[in-house]
């Protein structure tokens, strides 16, 4: 069930916590231990705002095991406003309404469950930005 593994990743999964290089300011999601820009190992936690635009997307109908119950689902790459790309599911939208370049925002959803008696893994997905104010 990978209990410790998913527990370990919750800051990233729930709140898009990545890292920022204390030396050169480069921002990373997922977090890195070594800066790709200046090789510094002095990186600090950095929470991303969770908004960006869709870089690419596709639909999965032949799923890897553990994801069967969700098909068909949309997966995508999101270019966060702070720079990094992140891969995640795109939710709350019909495939026909998804477009490259679309503005999206992070939501927290169920990523998968380990059967009916196992742990439920929650984490980030993205959806077209809601403007319901």
């Amino acid at each position: 069930m990978d209990l410790a593994r998913h527990w370990r990743l919750k800051d990233q999964r729930y709140r898009l916590e990545g890292t920022v290089c204390a030396e050169c300011g480069a921002k990373f999601f997922p977090p890195r231990q070594v800066c790709t820009e200046c090789k510094s190992t002095n990186l600090k936690p950095h929470e991303f705002a969770g908004r960006g635009e869709l870089y690419s997307f596709t639909t999965v109908s032949a799923p890897p095991s553990g994801h069967e119950e969700f098909v068909p689902y949309i997966v995508g790459m999101v270019k966060l406003d702070e720079g990094p790309l992140v891969e995640a599911q795109i939710t709350d939208v019909n495939p026909a309404d998804v477009k490259i370049g679309q503005r999206v925002e992070m939501v927290t959803r169920k990523l998968r469950a380990y059967g009916d008696d196992g742990v439920i893994v929650y984490g980030y997905k993205f959806r077209p930005i809601v403007n319901g104010s």
Binding site: Y55, S56, V60, A62, V75, M77, V121, G123
Partner: peptide, 30 residues
């Protein structure tokens, strides 16, 4: 399918249900 996805990043790609085909589809679409 899940096993082939082990060629990708387990914590940041496979957990999102992104199959190996889907990774290539993301590239092809872009």
């Amino acid at each position: 399918t899940a096993s082939l996805a082990m060629a990708a990043d387990a914590d940041y790609e496979a957990i999102h249900g992104i199959s190996f085909v889907a990774l290539n589809a993301l590239l092809m679409r872009r």
